[in-house]
Amino acid sequence: MKLPFELPLETDRLILRLAREDDVAALMEYSADPEVCRYLPYEPRDEDEIRKSMVRRLGFTEFTPDGHPLFLHVELRETGEMIGEFLLFSRDVEARQGEIGYVLNPRFQGKGYAKEAAIALMDAAFKTANLHRIEAKCSAANAPSWGLMEKLGMRREAHFKEQAIFKGEWDELLIYAILQREWLELHP
């Protein structure tokens, strides 16, 4: 499947777009931060690892259900500064299932940017790409992440206690989801 909708996605304050080579410095600012990586499936990254990640992102050509997510970098419309990233995974083409993920630079948290970007992405996924269901996952300890999911109108569907060893400790996984018809009721 090619891109599921036209890019960039734009909101009043943000632009969600594909990665660019000049995003490396912005990615370094938060991807090297241990606190940011606390709940992510990787450790803080150095510049070489960021550049390797960028090669994969810049080589993106399709949105497929085999693990190749759509990486969207979020930039401030006013300044052009890249402040974070959102991912959309295709989990099952026939059942029209998707999953979102997100990371925001801590300097820009608490300003409503994550919710604004998520609404833009989920609107496009449901209204243009015609997904039936979108889910999101996070550690139960990551209250800001599941708090965003709840602000988006997603429902908690699962809470797996001590389901895996994550970074040396037992982790609890939360799964949230929302159906297309539920989203459209909230965002006609």
Rank of each mutant, 00 (worst) to 15 (best):
L3R: 12
F5K: 08
L14T: 00
L18W: 03
L18R: 12
A19V: 04
R20H: 15
E21P: 03
A25Q: 13
A26Y: 01
L27T: 01
L27S: 04
M28T: 03
Y30A: 04
S31A: 15
D33P: 04
P34S: 15
E43S: 15
D48C: 04
R51E: 10
R56P: 00
E62G: 12
F63T: 01
T64L: 06
D66M: 05
H68Y: 08
H68F: 09
P69D: 08
L72H: 00
L72F: 05
L76M: 14
G80L: 10
D92I: 09
G98T: 02
N105P: 05
N105D: 14
P106D: 07
R107M: 10
Q109Y: 06
G110A: 09
G110W: 10
Y113T: 05
K115L: 11
K115M: 05
E116Q: 12
I119T: 13
L121H: 01
M122N: 03
M122S: 02
A125W: 00
L131M: 14
R133D: 08
C138T: 08
S139H: 12
A140Q: 10
N142P: 12
S145L: 08
E150F: 04
E150T: 11
E150V: 11
L152E: 00
L152N: 00
M154T: 03
R155I: 10
R156E: 14
R156C: 15
A158F: 11
F160V: 06
E169S: 11
E169A: 13
D171W: 05
D171T: 07
L174V: 09
A177K: 02
Q180W: 01
